[in-house]
Amino acid sequence: MQNTKQNSYEEIIVAGFGGQGIMLAGRLLAQTAMKAGKEVTYMPSYGAEVRGGTANCMVIIADEPIASPLVDKPDSLIVMNKASLNKFASRLKAGGLLVMNSSLIDTKPQLDDSIEIIAIPADEIAVELGNKKIANMVALGAYFQKRGILSPDTAAACLPDTIAKRYHKTLPVNTEAIHRGAEFTKDNE
């Protein structure tokens, strides 16, 4: 399957529940895109909804200045729990990419055949790596590998700018998580 675009214009939604590092994942996506010389916007959901338990953010990556930062129909969707899958899956564009955390999503979603699905046990892989909080990075790694617009290495290089300084001791394990996610995709292709 062709996974790179000639003229990259990619709209992404990352979603999960509060505490899964959804916003961090979105910010890393944005930071990576900027480092790769792209135009990028990052738009978090904010307020009551976050406290209600679901968190999501919208990222747009492009070669030209981005008009609207809002994503209605994403090209790619990264979901970390079932509620988010149910909420956003139907919005995916035909031919889009779904990366889902199969550790917390036990069903196969009913989607258009043109949509490619990567079901990655992100929580299990994270626990294997010794830190259950880095499932977000595992899923991102899978996304980078599949989409091919941004490289896992560039993302890893952006971690220090994205993660707060007081957590910098977790940089190595976060880096490893991105690579493990990427390898998972490679192995299953």
């Binding site: 910010r27 944005a30 135009e39 990028v40 916007t41 990052y42 738009m43 978090p44 904010y46 930062p69």
Partner: peptide
């Protein structure tokens, strides 16, 4: 507005 305040851009 809320979008401009919250969104990140380079």
């Amino acid at each position: 507005d809320g979008i401009l305040g919250q969104m990140m851009e380079p």
